[in-house]
């Protein structure tokens, strides 16, 4: 698993993708927070505005990271080689996923200048900031696990990007549907929505149930991914 992780990280480092993603992501988040969010007009040392928009940005960012993971292997003809290696499918899947998750972490780290700036200007409560980043990492991990699985289903990166984007959108929007619809449907949507779990972490409360939810989510899609890869070996 570690060798797959290292290989993926090496391919990230030499290519432009992680840098381009981190540049666009950090610049957009800073633009959103300081310009569109009118930070200096409201003058509140809070980061809700930043963490509130993150799930929507992840709808684009996460599929952009995950789309190439399997599709590129299939397109470049290296998938067959990879599948014939004496490595278990789940190890390959986990290695690829962890590398992509590290890239997402790199993108999030690139935005740390924002809370540092805010804390220099006022009395920022770091608890919700830490909770928010943890939530973002877990939410990103969940969407990423799904995106990596989608990538294993198609040889086309664009298709993988679009399908993962739509799935991510549905998952994120479920929380807002729950808020608008109400009733039993709303309650059900709220229970399975990633948004309410993410919101809870963003308050600065790390609940074991939220962690378990995200880990289960990741585990399920990584398992599906491993199953998909394993099936590919027998085709």
């Amino acid at each position: 698993m570690l060798s797959v992780y290292r290989k993926e990280m090496r391919s990230y480092l030499v290519g432009p993708i992680p840098y381009v993603l981190a540049i666009i992501f950090s610049a957009y988040m800073a633009w959103w927070f300081f310009f569109l969010g009118d930070f200096f007009l409201y003058r509140e040392a809070r980061m809700e505005n930043f963490f509130g928009v993150l799930p929507w940005v992840f709808i684009f960012l996460v599929p952009a990271i995950s789309m190439r993971l399997w599709s590129e292997e299939a397109r470049g003809g290296t998938l067959e080689v990879l599948l014939t290696l004496p490595v278990k499918s789940w190890k390959i899947v986990l290695g690829k996923f962890l590398a992509a998750w590290t890239l997402l972490l790199f993108c999030l780290v690139a935005t740390l200048a924002i809370p540092i700036t805010v804390s220099n200007l006022g009395d920022l409560d770091w608890g919700p900031v830490i909770g928010g980043y943890l939530g973002a990492l877990l939410l990103g991990g969940a969407l990423l696990a799904m995106g990596v699985w989608v990538s294993a289903l198609t040889a086309h990166q664009i298709v993988a990007f679009l399908v993962a984007g739509v799935f991510s959108f549905v998952l994120v929007v479920l929380g807002f549907v729950a808020a608008r619809v109400g009733g039993d449907l709303g309650t059900a949507c709220a229970q399975i929505s990633v948004a309410s779990r993410y919101d809870s972490l963003g308050r600065g409360v790390v609940d074991l149930r939220d962690i378990l939810y995200f880990v289960s989510f990741m585990g399920f899609f990584l398992y599906l991914n491993a199953v998909t890869v394993e099936n590919g070996r027998y085709r």
Partner: peptide, 20 residues
């Protein structure tokens, strides 16, 4: 402060990419 955040960090990331 606004421009430092919007451009400063991305420039640093770009610089890191060029160095690598």
């Amino acid at each position: 402060l606004k421009w430092l955040n919007v451009l400063g960090v991305p420039l640093l990331v770009l610089l890191a990419g060029i160095v690598v």
